[in-house]
Nucleic acid binder design. Structure first.
Length: 485
RNA sequence: GGCGGGUUGGCGGAGAGGUUACGCAGCGGAUUGCAAAUCCGUGAAGACCGGUUCGAUUCCGGUACCCGCCUCCA
């Protein structure tokens, strides 16, 4: 069996992954707060842990992996959104979850096994808080329940901080009823304008951190294998989760391995609305970046390094996918000669991923399969990486290699582009005729004019002794092509 | 201020204590009416200063710079 190695944030070392139960490998990843479209920073952990999910399924079997990713649907940002729009909270969260699914589906991310909503686990949260209070790890005061940080001796171990250091450097405004400045909220009171539930501490709502502890416990148990999320969540969110869960379920150890993906920048700068470089995934999709291109850009950078989103990277990813599509499409019958769904990723690709998710190295291998025209390895690798081969072929394949040119009745193009594919051969014939004339007359102006127009329409013009190929490229513009017909 | 991380060729971006990463761009050649595409070939690196070592870009320490978290934002 392949040995998977993962960097554990808790130990800051790369460790051999040995599941608690290989028949039920369990992973929890912090999901979105659902009040708006996911931006491209939110999407990075989704792609990273989807890739890990796929690797685990590959190694341990699809049925042997349980992946839980929550929706935070109770939060002050959601309340604010509801207040300013006048819409019901549930309507906002339902709509946002729908968007999230659409956008992450476009990136080729599999749906996790469980996608719990925080509001469906209020009872479990209350039960956990009650236990923490009963055991002296938390206390109730003025309608709040607070976690007593000093009662968990390892508090700060994950993020490498000591409670004393943090207090010294803290800029936090400390609520007067806290025993200790670092104590954090498990439950807080709600007024008429905010959603709430009845609890032993009065009508109120949960603090942010308790939901993940409660849902992970309900769905995965007191101890499980992997807990993931963005590096920004390491402190305080994950630190607090550990404190809560370890105190509520002593001895269980909570997550064995903690994984954190680095943050994302855009064109070398932090993504922010004020800099005007803030994109949602939907923005990019609407700008015409296919989901596969976006995913490819993510996979190009190791998850523990800061990643920069740039238009140039997207261009290169698209170029690579076009080449891949040509290979996938080079034999119209290739899909029939072996089942694409069963193509296996070569060992070297699996091992690249097994080595702490070295997606960049995996893509290096993919490049070689493209160069060597190795369809089988290419299909297997792309599938394991979540880059759907059929989609790539349909989205990026060139017209010149479709059925029309080869006399076979296999069409692999998306319907919209197929319509144009029918017209390209006519243009090609005209081009060939013009070229033949030019060769004889030595007047190349007419053929050059047509060539220039085709290039302007984003069509690659390939001439050889054998004939002419017209291939739509990255900047393909159907409207300009229409004008030539 | 506290804590954590990073710094690789023109650009992006990996592995490995000693042997070509790879991709994009560049350059040379083949090919072409000219190109494009393709193929062949090729130059180019490891922030700085020390240390360990026969040997470090890879390990250790320091400096500089950058980034993140500590505070609503991922």
């Amino acid at each position: 069996m392949v040995t998977i190695r993962l960097t554990n944030s808790k130990t800051r070392r790369k460790e051999v992954f040995a599941p608690i139960n290989p028949a039920n490998v369990r992973m929890y990843v912090c999901g979105p707060t659902v009040y708006d479209r996911a931006h491209i920073g939110n999407a990075r952990p989704v792609v990273v842990f989807d890739t890990l999910f796929r690797l685990l399924r590959h190694v341990y079997g699809a049925e042997a992996v349980t992946y839980a990713r929550n929706f935070t649907d109770v939060d002050d940002k959601i309340n604010a959104r509801a207040a300013e729009s006048g819409r019901p909270i549930r309507e906002i969260t339902d709509e946002t979850i729908g968007w999230y699914h659409q956008d992450m589906d476009a990136l080729g991310a599999l749906r996790p096994t469980h996608e719990p909503r925080a509001t469906e686990y209020i009872g479990a949260m209350i039960a956990m808080i009650e236990k923490l209070i009963a055991d002296g790890h938390a206390y109730a005061v003025e309608g709040h329940a607070l976690f007593r940080v000093r009662s968990y001796k390892d508090y700060g171990a994950l993020s490498g901080r000591s409670v004393d250091d943090m207090i010294a450097g803290a800029r936090v405004e400390v609520a007067p009823f806290k025993e200790d400045p670092m104590d954090f909220v498990l439950w807080k009171p709600s007024g008429a304008a905010t959603p709430g539930w009845d609890s032993p501490w009065g009508y109120g709502r949960p603090g942010w951190h308790i939901e993940c502890s409660a849902m992970a416990y309900e769905l995965l148990g007191a101890s499980f294998d992997i807990h993931g999320g963005g590096l920004d969540l390491q402190f305080p969110h994950h630190e607090n989760e550990i404190a809560q869960s370890c105190c509520a379920h002593p001895g269980a150890g909570f997550a064995k391995i903690w994984m954190h993906n680095e943050m994302l920048q855009v064109e070398g700068r932090k993504m922010s609305k004020s800099l005007g470089n803030f994109f949602t995934v939907r923005d990019l999709l609407n700008q015409g970046y296919p989901g596969e291109v976006i995913r490819m850009v993510y996979l190009g950078t190791h998850y523990r390094k800061p990643m920069d989103w740039t238009a140039e990277k997207a261009r290169q990813a698209e170029m690579t996918l076009r080449k891949a599509a040509e290979v996938l499409n080079s034999d119209p019958f290739s899909e029939l000669s072996f089942s694409w769904a069963h193509a296996k990723a070569p060992t070297e690709v699996v091992e690249a991923l097994a080595n702490d998710l070295n997606t960049s190295l995996a893509l290096t291998h993919v490049n070689r399969y493209i160069k060597e025209n190795d369809i089988y390895s290419l299909v297997g690798s792309l599938s394991l990486l979540g880059l759907r081969p059929q989609v790539i072929r349909d989205e990026f394949a060139s017209f010149s290699l479709t059925a029309d040119d080869r006399g076979v009745s296999v069409s692999t193009r998306a319907a919209e582009t197929n319509a144009l594919a029918d017209r390209l051969p006519a243009l090609r014939e005209r081009f060939e005729a013009l070229r033949a004339e030019a060769m004889a007359s030595k007047d190349f102006a007419p053929v050059d004019a047509l060539k220039t127009a085709l290039i302007a329409a984003g069509v690659e013009v390939r001439m050889s002794k054998a004939g002419v190929e017209l291939v739509p490229g990255a900047g393909f513009d159907a409207a300009k092509l229409e004008a030539l017909l």
